[in-house]
Design a binder for these strands. Structure first.
Length: 296
DNA sequence: CTAACTCGCCGTT
DNA sequence: AACGGCGAGTTAG
C-alpha cells in the first residue's frame, strides 16, 4: 500500500501529471467494460506504455492495472453495499477515535459572523494564491481567522473573479500563507502540522450540512440522504445536494465523498471525473485490490 | 430484473 | 415561483 511516499520530485510537474492522469481515468471510466490494456490507455493519452506505467504508478502508488479495478460503475455500487453494512459504526467509531489519517477531524468550521456575512466581507483581509495540487490547480484563500476559499480551476482569472465575487467588499492580497500549505497537504493526503480552521459563510442549514460532511472519514463514502438525516431534515436530500454544491472550500469539506443513494456517482462542482479520481485515489490507499472478482 | 420517468421534497435566489 | 450535485415509487422493456 505504501502511503507517505513522496509523490513528486518537482511541483511544476504536477499539473502536467494531473491532466494526463485525468484523461487516462476518463478513458478508463468510459471503457471499463472493455478492460483496456496498458497499451490502450497509454496510447489514448499519447504517452509510451512504459513511461505511462511509471507516471501513473508514481502518481497513484498503484499500477494502472490495479487502479483500473477501482474505477467502474460496479465499484460505486460495491462501496455502497459495503457501506450499508457498517457505516454507522465505522463512521462514528473511526471518526472519533482520532487514530489513523482522519485529517478532516482536525478541521473545524467557524461560520462568519452575521456582520461579516452581511457586509460581503467588508473590512476583511483576504490572502490568496494559486497552487498546483494532486488533483489539478487550486486557488486558495484565507482570512486571518481561517481558510475561506478553495476552488479547483482551469482558468485562473476566472477563479480569482469567483473569489472576488464571493466577498465583493473585502481587501485582497495576492500573498502566500503558511495555512495554504496545510491545505495542499490535506489534499495530498499527508499529515498537517497545524489544525485547520475554516472561515466560511453560509446559512445555518448549510453549516449543518458542511459540518456533517466533516465526519466522513477519508476513504469512505456517504450519501446525500444520509447527510440529510444527520442534518435533521431527512427529506431534504435535494436541498442537501445544493448545499453541498455551494461548499466554498473544496476537499477540506469533502463533498467528493457523497454519492447517490442508488449508487450513482452524483454531481460535482469541479467535474464528475475529478470526483471519481479523488474517490478512487483515497480508496486506493486503503485497499490494494478491493473489487477483485466482482467486475463484469 | 434494470432503466427510464414522474412526481414529491425542501432550502435558496 | 422556479430551480437544483436527490430519492422513492412506477412503468416500460
Amino acid at each position: 500500500m505504501g502511503q507517505n511516499r513522496p509523490l513528486y520530485k518537482f511541483d511544476s510537474m504536477k499539473d502536467f501529471h494531473y491532466s494526463t492522469i485525468e484523461k487516462a481515468i476518463r478513458y478508463i471510466r468510459t471503457h471499463f467494460k472493455d478492460q483496456p490494456s496498458l497499451e490502450d490507455i497509454a496510447q489514448h493519452v499519447h504517452v509510451s506504455p512504459s513511461h505511462f506505467q511509471k507516471l501513473f504508478t508514481d502518481w497513484a502508488g498503484v499500477s494502472p492495472k490495479s487502479f483500473l479495478s477501482h474505477v467502474s460503475v460496479n465499484y460505486a455500487k460495491y462501496l455502497l453495499r459495503e457501506r450499508q453494512l457498517s457505516l454507522f459504526e465505522t463512521a462514528h467509531e473511526t471518526g472519533l477515535s482520532g487514530t489513523g489519517r482522519l485529517h478532516d477531524l482536525f478541521v473545524t468550521i467557524e461560520g462568519m459572523t452575521p456582520g461579516e456575512f452581511k457586509n460581503n466581507g467588508q473590512h476583511l483581509n483576504i490572502y490568496y494564491d494559486a497552487y498546483p495540487s494532486l488533483f489539478g490547480n487550486v486557488l486558495i484563500a484565507s482570512t486571518d481567522k481561517g481558510i475561506c476559499f478553495v476552488h479547483f480551476y482551469e482558468n485562473k482569472q476566472k477563479a480569482i473573479e469567483n473569489l472576488r465575487n464571493e466577498f465583493p467588499e473585502a481587501t485582497f492580497k495576492n500573498e502566500k500563507k503558511p495555512s495554504h500549505d496545510d491545505v495542499i497537504k490535506v489534499i495530498e493526503g499527508l499529515p498537517t502540522k497545524n489544525k485547520i480552521n475554516l472561515h466560511v459563510k453560509g446559512s445555518p442549514f448549510r453549516l449543518k450540512v458542511w459540518n456533517a460532511l466533516l465526519s466522513v472519514p477519508e476513504g469512505q463514502l456517504t450519501t446525500y440522504k444520509h447527510i440529510a438525516v444527520q442534518a435533521q431534515s431527512p427529506d431534504a436530500s435535494r436541498a442537501v445536494g445544493s448545499a453541498i454544491g455551494a461548499n466554498p472550500v473544496a476537499y477540506l469539506i469533502p463533498c467528493h465523498r457523497v454519492i447517490r443513494n442508488d449508487g450513482g456517482l452524483g454531481g460535482y462542482m469541479w467535474g464528475p471525473d475529478r470526483k471519481c479520481v479523488m474517490i478512487a485515489h483515497e480508496k486506493s490507499k486503503y485497499y490494494e485490490n478491493p473489487v477483485t472478482g466482482i467486475l463484469p
